[in-house]
C-alpha cells in the first residue's frame, strides 16, 4: 500500500496538466513580448535574459536549464548569437522537444533578409564574427512582423486546435505594428542619409530601416575593444566628415564614446537593444534618437 502511494505521488510530480498553457521560453525579452501578443491567453512566456543584458556574453545558469526543461517552445535569436551558452543548456534541459530540429525549437528569422553575411575566407582575425550574418535582426520593426508570423506558424503546429486564434492575433499585431512603424518613420524622416558612428554592429538593421549611414564603428572588429590607434583614426574620421552622433548600446562600456565626445564634441546617445515590450523598445529608441540628431 505504501509503495503504491509513493508511486502515485511520483507520477503526479511528473504529470503535466492536460489544459496547461503552451509554455514558451525565449532567450531575449523582445521575443517573449511578441510571443505573448501572438499566443494571447493560450501561452505563458518567459525570457531567460533581462533587457539590459548583452546576449553575446551570458553564463548558462542552472535556472535557465530548469526553465527550458518545462518549455514547449524555445525561441532563440539564432545566427550564433547565443552559441556561447545555449548549446550546453539544451543538453542540460533534458527536454527532447526543444532540441534543434524539433518543433519546439525556433529561430524566427525565416523570411528576414539577413545582413552582414561575411564573404570570402572567414577567420577570427576579423574579431568575433557571426559566420551566418548579423543576428540583431529584431531591431528593424518590420522584421517584428515576420518574427510574429513565424511564431504563429510554429504555435499552430504545436497547438493546431488554436491555429485560427494565433492567426487572428498575428493579424491584429501586424496592424498595430504597421501603424506604429508608420508613426516612427514619420518621426525619423529627417534622419535619412545622416551619418553616425555605432559602438557594435547591433544597430545595423535599425539604421538600414531608417536610412542612417553607419560610417564607422568604435569596435574596429566586432567583440574586440578598440585599440588606441583605431580611436585616433576614428577621431580624425569624425572630424573630417563632421559626423554628428555616436550610438552606443546601453550595456557597453561608455568610456570610448565619452572619449570621442570629449575629443570631437560629437553627441552620444545610449540606446537599448532590448525591452520587455517590443513596441515600447521602439517607443524609447525613436524619440531618443530623434532628440540627439
Amino acid at each position: 500500500m505504501k509503495k503504491n502511494i509513493i508511486f502515485v505521488l511520483v507520477l503526479c510530480l511528473y504529470t503535466v496538466p492536460v489544459f496547461a498553457k503552451i509554455n514558451i521560453v525565449t532567450t531575449i525579452p523582445d521575443f517573449a513580448s511578441i510571443a505573448k501578443e501572438v499566443g494571447g491567453d493560450m501561452v505563458s512566456v518567459k525570457s531567460l535574459l533581462r533587457s539590459n543584458q548583452d546576449p553575446h556574453y551570458i553564463e548558462p545558469k542552472p535556472s535557465f536549464a530548469s526553465s527550458m526543461n518545462q518549455a514547449d517552445l524555445f525561441i532563440v535569436v539564432g545566427l550564433e548569437l547565443e552559441i556561447g551558452w545555449v548549446p550546453v543548456l539544451l543538453t542540460q534541459s533534458r527536454n527532447p522537444e526543444i532540441q534543434k530540429g524539433k518543433a519546439g525549437y525556433l529561430e524566427p528569422w525565416r523570411g528576414i533578409r539577413i545582413l552582414d553575411i561575411p564573404t570570402g575566407k572567414i577567420d577570427r582575425s576579423g574579431g568575433d564574427i557571426h559566420p551566418d550574418g548579423n543576428p540583431h535582426y529584431w531591431l528593424d520593426p518590420r522584421n517584428g512582423i515576420v518574427i510574429a508570423k513565424n511564431i504563429a506558424d510554429r504555435l499552430s503546429k504545436l497547438d493546431p486546435g488554436n491555429a485560427t486564434l494565433y492567426k487572428n492575433n498575428v493579424v491584429k499585431y501586424e496592424k498595430k505594428l504597421k501603424e506604429k512603424i508608420a508613426f516612427w518613420q514619420r518621426q525619423l524622416k529627417g534622419l535619412k542619409g545622416k551619418s553616425v558612428v555605432t559602438h557594435h554592429q547591433s544597430f545595423t538593421y535599425f539604421a538600414n530601416w531608417i536610412g542612417l549611414r553607419v560610417v564607422d564603428r568604435i569596435e574596429d572588429k566586432p567583440g574586440i575593444p578598440p585599440s588606441a590607434s583605431h580611436m585616433i583614426a576614428l577621431i580624425k574620421h569624425i572630424r573630417s566628415l563632421k559626423i554628428p552622433l555616436v550610438i552606443t548600446e546601453h550595456y557597453y562600456n561608455p568610456k570610448p564614446s565619452e572619449k570621442l565626445k570629449k575629443e570631437t564634441g560629437i553627441a552620444v546617445v545610449y540606446l537599448p537593444t532590448s525591452a520587455t515590450n517590443y513596441i515600447a523598445l521602439f517607443d524609447e529608441l525613436v524619440p531618443k534618437l530623434k532628440g540627439s540628431l
Binding site: 527532447p96 530540429g101 524539433k102 518543433a103 528569422w109 523570411g111 539577413i114 553575411i117 508570423k149
Partner: peptide, 22 residues
Amino acid sequence: ATEIEENDNTTEQGQVLLWKIN
C-alpha cells in the same frame, strides 16, 4: 518510438523566403 520532426521551409503563402545562404 520518437518520430523526427520535419522542418517547415515554407511561409504561409507556400513560398520559400530564405534570404540567408546556409
